[in-house]
Amino acid sequence: MDQEKRNLTRNKGLAWVSALTLGAGAAGAVGAVAIAVTLPQSIVASNVSSAAVARTTSNGNGSSSGVSSQDDSSQDDSSQDDSTSQLQPAAPSQAQPAAPSQLQAAAPPSNTNNPPVATSGAS
């Protein structure tokens, strides 16, 4: 009798564990679906963020256009859920040093016979 009770208890336990496993599996499957559903939005959000950064870096005057760029991205995708809004920090919320991707070039200097009006050297 005791043996039967032990077996019954064990089986219930196994069933509980199995239920847990199935539940976790199901939850995992649901999670996977959720991720699959969310992923396109995340990608969109990432692209928007990259565009925002690109716009920021195109400003070579030391001013910060990141905030307005981020505002633009919000307008582009106002239906973003929490998961996408968490991606926003990829576009720096702080104005980092204005970051054009390279130093600005100018036309090369030319030879001249005019007398100098200024000098450039160490100071």
């Binding site: 200097p109 030879n111 001249t112 005019n114 007398p115 000098t119 450039s120």
Partner: peptide, 30 residues
Amino acid sequence: GGWSIRVQDVTGDPFTPAQGPACLVAIGEG
């Protein structure tokens, strides 16, 4: 003719001859 600038070792008066290697160039921007 652009802005005529003499490039030299040490910044100085443009009306005083340069000391050391120097060159004269003109720029129009930047």
